[in-house]
C-alpha cells in the first residue's frame, strides 16, 4: 500500500506491506533509527513517538494506520540545536544511563506534561508506568520530569538532585536530596 506521513517535519510517501509495524517502517523504511524497539508485547515503551500530538507506542500501530499523520520522534524534538526542556532535564538530573529507554521515556514525558503541566511525583510515576527503564531505578527520571515541568511553566528548573550542578561534593555528604 502507498502510505504518506510526515515524520519530524519531512513528508515521506512509500510502498508498505499492510502488516508492517509503524516502528519497523520508521526504522527500516525511513531510517529514523532514533526510536528503538525493546519488546514484542507493547510493554516497554522504548518505541514511543508522538502521533498528531499524542504519545503512542509505535510498535502497537501499523504503518498504514498512521497514514496522513504528523509524527514526531526523539530525532525531531529539539528545535535545531536547542534541546527541548525535557531533553535538557534528563541530562541535568542524570535521568538516563544506557539510554535505550530514553527516547520513549522523553516522548512519553513530553506528552504527560502537555496533559498535566503541574504533576506531583506520584502522578509522574503513574504517568510513566508504560515505559520501563532497567538502569536508573526511575528516581532521576521523575526528578527530570518535575524539573522540566517547572521550566515549561516558566518557573525555572527545580534544584538539582545533586547538591548543585557541577560543584564538587564534600567528602562525606549526607542524603543527596
Amino acid at each position: 500500500m502507498r502510505v504518506s506521513m510526515k515524520v519530524d517535519g519531512v513528508t515521506y510517501e512509500d510502498e508498505v506491506e499492510p502488516r508492517t509495524l509503524l516502528t519497523h517502517h520508521l526504522r527500516d523504511g525511513l531510517g529514523r533509527v532514533g526510536t528503538p524497539i525493546g519488546c514484542d508485547t507493547s510493554n516497554c515503551g522504548s518505541c514511543t513517538v508522538s502521533i498528531d500530538g499524542e504519545s503512542v507506542k509505535s510498535c502497537s500501530v501499523l504503518a498504514v494506520q498512521a497514514a496522513g499523520a504528523d509524527i514526531t520522534t526523539i530525532q525531531g524534538l529539539a528545535e535545531g540545536s536547542e534541546w527541548h526542556p525535557v531533553q535538557k532535564a534528563f541530562q541535568q538530573h542524570h535521568g538516563l544511563q544506557c539510554g535505550y529507554c530514553t527516547p520513549g521515556m522523553i516522548m512519553a514525558s513530553v506528552d504527560l506534561l502537555t496533559r498535566n503541566p503541574s504533576p506531583t511525583e506520584d502522578e509522574v510515576r503513574h504517568g510513566l508506568e508504560g515505559n520501563l527503564c532497567r538502569c536508573t531505578g526511575y528516581q532521576n527520571i521523575v526528578k527530570a520530569v518535575l524539573s522540566a515541568a517547572s521550566e515549561l511553566r516558566g518557573e525555572g528548573p527545580i534544584a538539582g538532585s545533586f547538591r548543585d550542578a557541577d560543584e564538587p561534593v564534600p567528602a562525606t555528604s549526607g542524603a543527596s536530596s
Partner: peptide, 26 residues
C-alpha cells in the same frame, strides 16, 4: 582544577537524548 569528586553531567548524553545513538540494530 577540582575535577575529581565533581558532579559532571555526562558527555554521552547528547547523542542519547537526541536519538543519535548507534545501537547494533541501527
Amino acid at each position: 582544577g577540582g575535577e575529581l569528586g565533581r558532579g559532571r553531567r555526562r558527555k554521552e548524553d547528547a547523542k542519547l537524548v537526541t536519538g543519535q545513538t548507534n545501537w547494533t540494530d541501527n
